[in-house]
Design a protein around this nucleic acid. Structure first.
Length: 828
DNA sequence: ATCTCTGGCCTCCGAC
DNA sequence: GTCGGAGGCCAG
């Protein structure tokens, strides 16, 4: 039996949805709220209490070779919760440990019966709601649904629109959506968790319709995309997760050009306007299906769910859930249980990977790169690292942390080996099939799913949200990795090579040719690592270093930031078409300005093509500089976009010494403004803005959509566009001076009072940021008759440099504190 | 109903 | 000017 969906109801039922011969079958069982206990630890009196308690439905002893488990079936969630974590006298287990007492009835059922996950019938939907209602209220179900559209992977599509603005008509509209959904089991929508799903559920309630939404698997396509899409090359694809921008990047086409914030207007006008709205609605929905067709990410997620045993809805996207499910399923037949996980433990920090600061100068040539294959899984396997094998008397020693593990195979290494074996098998299947066929895709997807699952193990062990969290184990993994890479560097240098960079599992080496490097890698695998493994008493050696690639030329801007052109990749020689490898540079970042990415990629391409003529680079920079400072700039060139990562109210604000609050990050200020205006903004929304004036603190910014061609060009160039390329050029050609393009903002110096001469080369002056310089100047002039200070006025700036320190600070502070009244309201 | 981790670079802000 | 914290996003 393959399970499509399952949920527990408040009444204590567990509903199971399966398919038999293509027909959907719904089964009901009692939801089980279980906790496990070591039978030997339960006292006589406790057992007596359990046997007679109305809170306990059933007691079962599960015998295994090494232990007898007592399985308590509590009558409901409350009973279990109170017994395990409640106050006295309900808490009967305060002395003993309890196991898996936090599992939901659904998880419990899936694990106990080792249920396989079915492929659900999938559809994509999109809603249009009344635009007169602000986003926040629409999510609460306060906006009418104007239309809905639905498509599936087989080409079926349907769209329906509200007939009249009435309660009954909307009832019909929403009911027909639920009718349509009957054919499907899984529903996807872009930002569905943030909008569409909530609206459907709330609006259904409001309209008095009785439909239980839990019969469907709700999967937020956007969150899925964020988590599984790792293909983005440049920052251009990362500037926004709006459907339009993703569709543009993936498919090369966007949404219909209809103002989504005026849906009500289009609907109300009727006729062709209403038709346009309907068309727009359908188009959006079709984009989802097309994105999936192109990327296959939903299919990949489906494979991941089938492998790990979680249901393919939004919650299943969490690695913690996937690993939890996979491990508990494997542990069950072994009689292995894990401690209940109720509260999140205080976050213990642990040390991570080793990153060597690059020791590279200019353009480095002929650089060979080796990397450890799946380093962290291989360490966990070799040292048999698992929560239940951790033991002070264990034979496997982690030298870096002093933690020891016993030799009896742990559940983590067991699971990892299983995943790796399965991956090998599916990769082999794939390679035996003709590329591009559906079988090939299936096998390839499975292979990727196994890899994704295996790679998430380390992260889950290091997550305090996981039941497998163990900071000591996580640190043992990372520090063993650090030791391995450091030992490898040492041995390489003993042989006359020079390590110029290393990060976690990779090693960049110069001063060697391919053959010698290859034999060095072999020596490491055959001698160095086996020796280390032997010394530390490990069960087996799964550590493997591989000669991955060589760079013809590579430039390091810093740790985690470099660009290089290949000589070969895994032995395959590079061709003229081979793209450069770009890591960490602003070109790859979604929060950099397009102009910065564009300038940087031009320089990158020239460097990788072997150009060493500084004149060429100067020309490129000069041209861009001219464009930035003098020519019309489009919004896409100047927009800065950053993610709103938490609720606006949760951003930290400090009380400054002057009693006012410190400024919020610029994108948060814009977000606040947008929320005020009723624009759709939630956690995870990317906020686009343009900087208007950076000569003031804090910077003044403008919401991207209000951009009219005016922005602070000096700031753009001086702070955002040139520095990334400046750093790259300075790294590639350190002997050349690249500073001449810096600091374009003019510093016009004017004496405030004619006739006062600014002293040349004067000593450091104290600077005061005043609210309004003009007011101050005029006050000084009027009250003192003559200004005893000299002001340096940067162009369009409000920063003041005052020469006579003592007097100046006194006067200006009085001005700032409001002790000095300024009548004149005239400003610049 | 939120949730794989640490290391590192960069920008802005505000204190000194 | 310099420095540290907050925030963001990337490498692995």
């Amino acid at each position: 039996m393959k399970l499509i969906n399952a949920f527990a109801s408040y009444e204590g039922d567990l509903t199971l949805i399966t398919r038999v011969n293509g027909e959907r079958v719904i089964k009901r069982e009692k939801a089980q709220y279980i906790s496990y206990h070591k039978y030997s630890e339960i006292s006589e009196s406790c057992l007596h209490w359990l046997k007679s308690s109305p809170l306990v439905r059933e007691l079962i002893i599960e015998p295994y070779d090494h232990i007898n488990w007592l399985r308590i079936n509590w009558v409901d969630y409350e009973a279990r919760q109170n017994a395990l974590w409640g106050e006295k006298p309900y808490c009967i287990f305060e002395s003993g440990e309890h196991y898996e007492g936090d599992l939901s009835p659904v998880m419990r059922y899936l694990i106990d019966n080792n249920v396989e996950i079915a492929k659900p019938k999938r559809c994509y939907i999109d809603l249009e709601t009344d635009s007169r209602v602000p986003f926040i209220k629409a999510v609460e179900g306060r906006a009418a649904i104007l239309s809905w559209a639905l498509v599936d992977d087989l080409g079926h599509e349907k769209v329906e629109v509200l007939n009249r603005d009435s309660y009954n008509d909307e009832q019909d509209l929403v009911m027909s959506l639920w009718q349509e959904l009957q054919q499907y089991e899984q529903v996807l929508a872009w930002n569905g968790d943030g909008f569409d799903f909530k609206v459907i559920k709330e609006r259904t309630k409001y309209l008095g319709l009785s439909v239980n939404h839990r019969y469907w698997l709700w999967l937020d396509h956007m969150l899925l995309f964020k988590r599984l899409n790792t293909a983005a090359e440049s920052g251009d694809e990362k500037t926004s997760y709006k459907l339009n921008d993703i569709a543009q990047a993936i498919l090369g086409e966007g949404k219909d050009t209809l103002d989504g914030s005026r849906t009500w207007y289009y609907w109300e006008k009727g006729g062709s306007d209403r038709e346009a709205l309907v068309k727009y609605n359908l188009k959006d929905t079709k984009l989802l299906q097309q994105i999936e067709k192109k990327t296959g990410l939903v299919d990949l997620f489906q494979s991941l769910c089938e492998v790990t045993g979680v249901l393919p809805d939004t919650y299943g996207l969490q690695p913690v859930k996937q690993v939890d499910s996979f491990l508990l399923r494997l542990a069950k037949p072994k009689g292995l249980k894990f401690l209940s996980k109720n509260v999140v433990v205080e976050h213990e920090k642990f040390k991570g990977a080793y990153v060597m600061p690059p020791e590279a100068h200019g353009i480095e040539k002929n650089i060979h790169v080796a990397d450890f294959q799946r380093l962290y899984p291989s360490i966990m396997i070799s040292w048999n690292m698992s929560p239940e094998t951790k033991s002070e008397t264990g034979e496997c020693l982690v030298e870096a942390t002093g933690v020891r593990f016993s030799k009896l195979q742990g559940i983590l290494p067991f699971a990892l080996k299983k995943l790796i074996d399965l991956r090998k098998k599916s990769s082999k299947d794939r390679d035996e099939l003709p590329p591009g066929t559906s079988g090939w895709y299936d096998a390839n997807r499975l292979s990727t799913a196994y890899k994704v699952a295996a790679n998430s193990f380390y992260g889950v062990v290091g997550s305090s949200f996981s039941r497998f969290f163990d900071a000591q184990i996580a640190e043992s993994v990372t520090q063993t990795g650090a030791q391995l890479i450091k030992e490898t560097i040492k041995e390489a240098e003993n042989r006359g090579m020079k390590a110029i960079y290393a990060d976690t599992d990779s090693l960049f080496v110069k001063g060697v040719d391919a053959e010698v490097f290859k034999s060095f890698v072999s020596w490491c695998n055959e001698t160095l690592y086996p020796q280390m493994i032997e010394r530390m008493g490990c069960v087996e050696n799964d550590i493997c270093l591989a000669y991955e690639k060589a760079f013809d030329r590579v430039v390091f801007v810093g740790a985690k930031k470099y660009v290089g052109s290949y000589l070969h990749y895994k032995g395959k020689r590079a061709s003229v078409e081979s793209k450069p490898e770009i890591k960490g540079l602003e070109y790859r970042r979604g929060d950099s300005v397009f102009l910065a990415r564009k300038l940087q990629i031009q320089v990158i391409e020239k460097i990788c093509a072997g150009c060493e003529d500084s004149n060429i680079y100067e020309e490129i920079v000069q041209k861009t500089m001219n464009h930035v400072l003098n020519e019309p700039l489009s919004l896409s060139e100047v927009i800065i976009s950053k993610t709103l990562s938490k609720e606006v109210e949760h951003y930290s604000v400090r009380l400054k010494k002057d009693g006012t609050f410190s400024a919020l990050p610029r994108h948060v200020v814009v977000a606040k403004d947008l929320i005020h205006k009723g624009v759709e903004v939630s956690i995870g929304t990317r906020i686009g803005y343009v900087v208007m004036d950076a000569s003031v603190r804090p910077l003044t910014v403008m919401y991207a959509e209000e951009y009219d061609g005016v922005c602070d060009r000096y700031y753009l160039w001086d702070s955002l566009v040139y520095p990334p390329t400046f750093r790259l050029l300075s790294s590639a050609f350190p002997l050349h001076d690249w500073t001449m393009f810096q600091k374009t903002r003019p510093e016009k110096i004017k004496p405030v009072v004619p006739g006062v001469v600014r002293p040349r080369g004067g000593k450091k002056s104290s600077d005061i940021t005043a609210e309004n310089l003009v007011k101050l100047q005029e006050w000084l002039y009027e009250n003192k008759g003559v200004v005893p200070f000299i002001f340096k006025l940067p162009w369009k700036s409000k920063k003041v440099y005052v020469k006579d320190k003592k007097e100046a600070i006194k006067v200006v502070n009085e001005f700032i504190r409001g002790k000095v009244e300024v009548q004149d309201e005239k400003t610049e």
